[in-house]
Nucleic acid binder design. Structure first.
Length: 687
RNA sequence: GCCGGGAUAGCUCAACGGUAGAGCACCUGAUUUGUAAUCAGGUGGUUGAGGGUUCAAAUCCCUUUCCCGGCUCCA
């Protein structure tokens, strides 16, 4: 549940929000006319429209929408006035008790959510109703004047939502809708929805052959990059590698798994075990394991001897004797293997004895198995790289960079195309520095973000500065109160001094320190955390990382975790929607498609392709039985960035006709000039 | 993980208790083309999986996997 809004804040609702919120009341009225016993909870305006949460025995499905919408239509036609009524607390409680609140009439059952809402209103705050026709709702408003002001609306979906957003509360039915001043705006919205569907990265990703999600064989949330998508991530990696190289980073490479000790040390296991894949249990091939697997039948048989006490010697062998001469025990067991137990009792004894023997052998020889975890983050591996060599203050700042593949066990219901996956290729780096170097390093990271945003034309973004909360210390956050405050001050200062636009969000930090998340919006309105930049004052200490300072003392470095391009998965997902699949030349999976008009030009076209590919341009020639128009249509549909069309006239003039995806025919130009321009556009990463 | 809705050819969809079909894609052939669809033919399916009801199941029922819309979560 969001923070309770003050009355003043509520009054600041925009015109559109007032309209949406009013439509929520109209929706509620319609529901009550159809199902008078509905228990209403909340009906706020949200970014796109509005919803109303309610509890109702009847399960509302989209099939009910026409019926509800028809009723809503009647209500807007009735043009009811939204009338504000101020009441006393006692009156409000009474109306909730009699079921009148959030209803059309008094009802046998109290309006239980409204009752709770009344009770949660702070003493002294005015309590108001809004009344439209018979519908009376506890509501701070504001509203439009009349229901008739709502010119157009539509119910969009029905879902469930936890009461007050708490997983432990029961789920209510939530009906979503949109509302507009007039029909034209509704139509515009519908058009936008169509456009959004068209741009959906899942749809474009399949159409363009960028990636595949093979849940059956690979697993849900584990993306396969197809060659076209692979081309994009190669470009992104090149961009990152070049940028990081120039910024003084060094590249490392680490395995995808690590032993349990790693994550016990990092603190991830206690804090984030749930979002890691369960461990692989690896039992090394010890003497006891080998023995058991080779002699399991003999061992079983031999247990009969326990009862008869015949071959105690087999168990009295010392571990060393067995280890040095496994044949001894085997022989002993073999000798008594002819003995057999009869009946149920014998079977039970045998089973117990087998278990005892196995445990004994395991405890003696095998010890604890090894647990390996798929890494959910790269930092621990990088910390171990830090400690793999002695470090001096002269080495600092040390910027270790890697495109590391991490695995996170996201909840099944959370997976979403490429945006939320279980294997992530992170544009990761850890910067180890001294407190004195921190401001400059942190600033440089932020600058790098801005540089990237410019390349991709990302204009709308917010840096969210997430800080800790005192209550979370020792639970959600490492229990080092003074370091939290100190580090957060440090970050805040850098942000203020650099003049970067940011907003502070309490109680959202990483467990080891404050972080900055970069929120962006794709053109179709989807919001993402694209990149992240975190300060870690805790984990380097847990790993005992130190560098030798000028004064010959060992100091623990600060660590900045940063991932300006986030993960390949989310970033490419974002880019697909951002560009609607129409990537700039440098990113386009298919950069150049050369189309000879007749067979006569094939040799000439092959030469052009060869020249382009020699310069690492993703170019190919396409000649088929189709007419030119058809081939152009297919090239456009495939979103090939640049088409070079070559007919007899072009070849005679050593020229090519250029057509750019979405821009149409640009005319015939000298071949050398065209190729030079293509190379320049790629090199400069022109938008 | 929770609530709800889905899953038919590579893609978009049809058949809604009675012989699984169309367009595009793909393959073959003809056509050699000047800027968003040349023509003809052909291949393609255990209807997500498993069970049940029925003379008969893509269709009805149950289980399960996955996907979608939300919620919760998100280092």
């Amino acid at each position: 549940m969001a923070e309770r809004k003050t009355l003043d804040e509520r009054q600041q609702m925009s015109e559109a929000e007032r309209l949406r919120h009013s439509c929520a009341h109209v929706l509620a009225t319609a529901i009550l006319r159809l199902w008078p016993d509905a228990q209403l909870a909340y009906g706020p305006a949200v970014e796109e429209g509005y919803y109303y949460d309610l509890d109702l025995k009847h399960r509302i499905t989209p099939d009910d929408f026409p019926k509800i919408e028809a009723e809503m239509k009647k209500i807007t036609k009735e043009n009811l006035v939204f009338e504000k009524v101020t009441v006393t607390r006692e009156q409000a409680l009474r109306d909730a008790e009699t079921g009148r609140l959030g209803a059309l009439t008094e009802r046998p059952e109290p309006s239980r959510f409204k009752l709770e809402n009344v009770r949660s209103i702070p003493e002294g705050e005015a309590i108001t109703y809004y009344k439209s026709g018979d519908f009376l709702d506890l509501c701070a408003g504001p509203h439009v004047m009349r229901t008739g002001n709502i010119g157009a609306f539509k119910l969009t979906s029905v879902a469930s939502a936890y009461y007050k957003g708490d997983e432990k509360n029961p789920q209510l039915q939530r009906i979503y809708g949109v509302a507009f001043k007039n029909k034209t705006q509704l139509e515009e919205w519908e058009k936008m929805q169509e456009e959004a569907k068209r741009r959906d990265h899942r749809k474009l990703g399949a159409e363009m052959g960028l990636f595949a999600l093979d849940a059956e064989y690979v697993g849900p949330g584990l993306a396969l990059w197809l060659p076209a998508g692979g081309a994009i991530i190669e470009e992104l990696e090149t961009l990152a590698k070049q940028t990081e190289f120039q910024a003084g980073y060094v590249r490392v490479k680490t395995p995808h798994i690590a032993r349990k000790l790693m994550y016990e040390t990092s603190g991830h296991l206690p804090y984030y075990a749930d979002s890691m894949f369960p461990p692989m249990v690896v039992r090394e091939n010890t003497t006891a394991d080998r023995f058991l697997s080779e002699n399991i039948e003999v061992a079983e048989e031999s247990l009969t001897m326990l009862r008869d006490g015949l071959v105690k010697a087999g168990f009295l062998l010392s571990p060393d004797e067995v280890r040095n001469n496994p044949g001894l025990l085997r022989d002993a067991l073999a000798r008594i293997s002819s003995l057999r137990m009869e009946g149920d009792v014998g079977e039970v004894i045998k089973q117990n004895a087998l278990y005892a023997l196995q445990s004994e052998l395991r405890a003696t020889y095998a010890g604890e198995p090894n647990y390996y975890y798929l890494k959910a983050m790269n930092c621990p591996h990088h910390h171990r790289i830090f400690s793999a060599q002695p470090r001096s203050y002269r080495d600092m700042p040390l910027r270790l960079a890697e495109y590391g593949c991490c695995y996170r066990y996201e909840q099944s219901g959370e997976l979403f195309g490429l945006m939320r996956v279980r294997s992530l290729n992170m544009n990761d780096s850890h910067i180890y520095c001294s407190p004195e170097q921190f401001a400059q390093e942190f600033n440089a990271v932020n600058e790098m973000y801005l540089k990237y945003f410019k390349i991709f034309g990302i204009e709308k973004y917010v840096m969210r500065f997430s800080t800790h909360s005192k209550e979370g210390l020792g639970k959600k956050y490492v229990d080092q109160a003074d370091l939290w405050v100190k580090t957060e001050d440090m970050v805040r200062r850098v942000l203020k001094e650099s003049g970067i636009n940011y907003e502070e969000v309490p109680n959202e930090a990483a467990f080891y320190g404050p972080k900055i998340d970069v929120q962006v919006w794709s053109v179709i309105g989807r919001e993402f955390t694209l990149a992240t930049n975190q300060v870690d004052f805790a984990v380097p200490g847990r790993f005992g990382l130190v560098y030798r300072d000028k004064d010959n003392s060992d100091k623990t470095p600060l660590c900045i975790h940063r991932a300006p391009l986030g993960t390949h998965e989310r970033f490419v997902g974002f880019l697909i929607e951002h560009y609607a699949g129409n990537f700039p030349l440098w990113l386009a999976p298919e950069q150049v498609r050369v189309l000879p008009i007749t067979q006569e030009q094939i040799a000439y076209c092959e030469e052009i392709v060869k020249e382009l590919r020699g310069q690492y341009v993703r170019a190919s020639m396409e000649f088929s039985n189709d007419k030119l128009q058809g081939r152009i249509k297919r090239a456009e549909e495939a979103k090939a960035h640049t088409m070079l069309i070559v007919g007899g006239r072009d070849q005679a003039a050593n020229a090519v006709s250029v057509r750019v995806h979405g821009k149409g025919d640009l005319g015939s130009k000298p071949r050398a000039e065209v190729i030079a321009d293509i190379l320049a556009a790629i090199r400069e990463r022109r938008p």
